[in-house]
Write a protein that binds this DNA or RNA. Structure first.
Lengths: 109, 109
DNA sequence: TCGCTTGATTGCAATATTACGATTGATATT
DNA sequence: AATATCAATCGTAATATTGCAATCAAGCGA
């Protein structure tokens, strides 16, 4: 017990859940918004901006990297992060597909 | 430690994260898709469909109810669940806003 | 009323997540 | 080479989530 029973669900369902989990934390939302806003790679300045410890930020960045939403390139001692446009568009599409248009008539109770 | 430091983030960021968390589990995705597909309220038959224990399904339904994505009405001994159209549209809008269009030129590294 | 069915709740065990201090590895700078 | 800086990783503690058996509560039919 305790672990999600992924074998009961379709590959797609597990995939959607994993993608949602990646953005299911305010720090990761904040990181993504910061990357969108500054357009460029803010790298380590995210630590000052967010107010979390360096180790914690690094952990969140790793998760975002794992699902491919961002990628980082080493620049000297610092690392530059930015949105992965391709994956970003996939997320856009996936959530649009999930929250498909629904008519009020479908509502039954 | 261990708990999310919500006070560090904006209300909106916490809200988005909470919404994402609500759909960050394959069972809840499966429930929503089933409700969309059958159009009507499948109620307790979700238990047979998904293969999880009744208590577990009930718990997931409760979470979906908590964020307002579904609502249930008692019909005799059974309970009829369906999508909450209003909240559904809010989710649709919120994720569309988050995954805003991005141009490849914004990509810097 | 008495059972039967349905679904919510409780209590518990297993696992996952969040957060951070401390350390490590890599690259600049002096 | 010695030192400083940045970010990843390790180890650990606290908290959250997942899942289920068992129980509870409400409505229905005989």
């Amino acid at each position: 017990m305790g672990a999600t029973k992924t074998d009961l669900f379709t590959k797609k369902q597990n995939e959607i859940a994993a993608m949602a989990k990646a953005i299911a934390h305010p720090a990761r939302i904040a990181i993504l918004q910061q990357l969108l806003k500054t357009n460029a790679c803010v790298c380590g300045s995210l630590v000052e901006d967010l107010g979390l410890a360096q180790a914690t930020i690094s952990q969140h960045l790793k998760e975002l990297k794992n699902v491919g939403l961002i990628h980082g390139t080493v620049e000297g001692t610092s690392v530059c992060y930015c949105i992965n446009t391709k994956t970003w568009k996939q997320y856009q599409q996936l959530f649009a597909d999930l929250f498909i248009d629904i008519t009020d008539s479908q509502n039954c109770c």
